[in-house]
Nucleic acid binder design. Structure first.
Lengths: 113, 113
DNA sequence: AGCGTTGCTACATTATTGATAGCATATCGT
DNA sequence: ACGATATGCTATCAATAATGTAGCAACGCT
């Protein structure tokens, strides 16, 4: 009694799944590779698709597109005439990330000891 | 002139690579799937390996072990007699994440409109 | 028309994640 | 001592995601 494999309709799991709380939804979103980095790079101002690629170390367009689409769906990023940019909501998140940066610096210093 | 493949010693890239700033190192670490979620679950208190698995929706031990090892290397998580727990450093990060939660709730509310 | 830039897609290859079984050790109750 | 149970963790292999590259269609510019 255990179907398990051989069920082609249910691939496996969307992501962390069972996102009851918003935080889980957020963690799923920003827990994907490159998402946080993209947000971070956009803090400095808008950037074109190819500009973002460069900032992220020549990130492949395949992944970049997936991420920006997800971020656009989430109303965190929008595509403007001057390129991809953080929305109002995204800017707020950017501020939180700035806070993380300060922590990251202390973290790095303490670990170096 | 371009070796590219067939060079088994250099797989391709560690991650985002070229981590000059601590924030990039941090983003690389927490940008991996499940890392943020694990930190989040540990905010509530220590948990055993299998306990963590359950909290993360039966996360496979393969990945969980990779993540906790990385977090231990980063002095963010430690293995105590009562299971995996956040270090002092990790607790600080947990507080930042709490802040993220509040944002996530507002985010969720605004999007629902 | 020709050139450069834009966002983005297709494709094949490689890396990561996933589910499952199971090991070695430790602790518990009997 | 013995088995039952729980611990952290590894091995193996299938499934999924990321990567690198080439290239398309649309736009503006000259």
């Amino acid at each position: 009694m255990n179907v398990k494999t051989s069920s082609p309709k249910i691939p496996r799991k969307p992501l962390s799944a069972s996102v009851a709380r918003p935080i889980n939804e957020l963690l799923d979103l920003v827990g994907q590779r490159w998402t946080l980095r993209i947000l971070w790079e956009l803090r400095d101002g808008p950037s074109t698709f190819r500009g973002l690629q460069l900032r992220c170390g020549n990130l492949s367009p395949t992944v970049l597109n997936k991420r920006v689409q997800a971020l656009r769906d989430a109303d965190i990023v929008e595509l403007t005439t001057s390129g991809y940019a953080l929305t109002t909501l995204g800017l707020e998140l950017g501020i939180k990330l700035l806070d993380l940066t300060k922590w990251a610096e202390r973290w790095s210093r303490k670990r170096a000891v």
